[in-house]
Computed example of a mutant assay.
Amino acid sequence: MKILFLCTDNYTRSVTAEFCLKHFLKKNKLTGFEVSSAGFKATSDLNKFSSIHFDRMHELGIETSTFERTQFKEEFLDEFSVIVGMGKEHRDYILEHFGKKIFLFNELYKNEQKSVVVPPPDAEGKYLEEIRNMVDYINQAMPIFVEQLSKL
């Protein structure tokens, strides 16, 4: 099964999901999966972004050394057996521009039509803790997420 996580910049949510899933699969010796991520604006300027999600994944023992941003291409709609949008805006974009339906991360994880949210930077730095929490949320979702994938 070829799985693609999709978000805007291919730097935070989709990348976290990609590496958390790869880690879970390896740890549990599960085979038959190819996991990638991409973004609609994978060439955007990352100066405004924090790398705290990478720090948190490293703390959890999740390997991210193969990280590389990937620009979304229409061909991916045929190449991947499952495409998972991290937010409703990603699902809506695919439907509007390509007429295809994709899953939401939370749809597969909790059967909820909700986005995985990453808050914008704030002066107090509260968003940094929210990003750490997002990593934990996605990582803890993987057993159920994989179980749901196996039902597709």
Rank of each mutant, 00 (worst) to 15 (best):
L4V: 08
L4P: 01
C7P: 08
T8I: 12
Y11K: 12
T12A: 13
R13W: 02
V15R: 15
V15E: 09
A17R: 09
F19W: 10
C20I: 02
K22I: 04
H23T: 09
F24T: 02
L25H: 06
L25E: 12
K26T: 12
K26Y: 05
N28M: 11
K29P: 01
L30F: 07
T31Q: 15
T31I: 12
G32Q: 13
E34G: 13
E34V: 14
S37D: 00
S37F: 00
F40A: 00
F40Y: 14
A42V: 02
T43I: 13
T43E: 12
L46C: 12
N47F: 12
S50H: 14
S51E: 15
S51W: 11
I52S: 02
H53I: 01
H53W: 00
F54L: 13
D55A: 09
R56C: 03
H58L: 06
H58G: 00
E59C: 08
E59H: 02
G61T: 08
E63N: 09
T64Y: 06
S65D: 09
T66Q: 10
T66V: 03
T66P: 07
F67M: 02
R69T: 03
F72V: 04
L77K: 11
D78K: 11
E79K: 12
E79S: 11
S81F: 09
V82E: 05
I83K: 13
V84N: 02
G87Y: 00
E89R: 14
E89Y: 09
L95P: 03
H97V: 08
G99P: 03
K101F: 08
K101C: 04
I102E: 05
F103V: 03
F103A: 01
Y109M: 01
N111W: 02
S115V: 00
P119L: 10
P120Q: 14
P120K: 15
G125I: 08
K126V: 08
Y127I: 06
Y127N: 04
E130I: 06
E130F: 07
I131C: 06
R132H: 08
V135D: 01
Y137F: 15
N139Q: 11
N139G: 01
A141Q: 03
M142K: 11
F145H: 04
F145T: 07
E147T: 06
Q148K: 15
